[in-house]
Nucleic acid binder design. Structure first.
Lengths: 127, 127
DNA sequence: GCGGATAACGAAAACGGTTGTCAAAATCCG
DNA sequence: CGGATTTTGACAACCGTTTTCGTTATCCGC
């Protein structure tokens, strides 16, 4: 009876990038769903166990999830001052991730890259 | 009066690798110190703020600290089946992240890289 | 359809690491 | 010594996550 699990999977797939369980819960509730937080967590755990989503931790310990898409993607260069994000591409990095994974006998390789910095404006503002 | 901060710094320096705040607290208590958990956290936070220790998060969200002002920045290749993690290095990626950030006028650049895959064992087990 | 076993659900409580509160103790300065 | 300031640590609050447990929905043999 994985209707709820499907719902969560879909919500995650539709949103790009990483979402926290609480984010997804808020999203679903605001869409009118009566899903419970517990179920969101359970679904994410199940999806994670079966390898359908990737999980990692933010700096403040929150778990964030991403639908596991092997499809090509881009990354973001995020300003830690104002949050401005620039889309960046790194074919070199894609190749590197694949090759390093393959070297260790891993298959079905995906990766995430986040680059953080202080943008020119914020650097200037800060003095 | 930063004897306590010194104590924590020293405890961290003496132990190799990553330790959690709770670990350090337990260590210090077992050595007879009457330090409080709050103080350990405060000291670690201060040390982290001043860049004297590195912080990261374990898979279950616990913060771990390492006295290390230097090198050994590495990433992880994580199996999405069994969770096994392999430490990987990618000087190329480090350089790429720096250069792409600089190109966009960003300074003070950091980055995170996570590579996910299915390890040989799990691929075999799964069929 | 009907009824009971089974699985999924969700509200609320429990949990564990972390952070905040606040009064007591230590330190500093005059 | 005495008062201002800082540091400390017991304790409570917090927050994301997990567990509990009673309710509800689904499945399956009749």
């Amino acid at each position: 009876m994985s209707t709820r699990r499907e719902t969560v999977r879909q919500a995650l797939t539709e949103s790009s990038g990483f979402r926290s369980a609480q984010d997804l819960y808020a999203d679903l509730r605001s869409e009118g769903s009566k899903i419970g937080l517990t179920t969101v967590y359970r679904a994410l755990q199940a999806l994670s166990d079966s390898g359908e989503v990737d999980v990692l931790r933010t700096d403040d310990g929150e778990a964030v999830y991403r639908a596991c898409i092997t499809d090509s993607h881009h990354h973001h260069l995020v300003c830690r001052g104002c949050g401005k994000a620039v889309e960046i591409e790194g074919p070199m990095v894609e190749r590197w991730a694949d090759s390093v994974g393959t070297q260790h006998g891993f298959t079905d390789i995906t990766h995430t890259v986040e680059v953080f910095g202080t943008c020119a404006d914020c650097a200037a503002a800060k003095g």
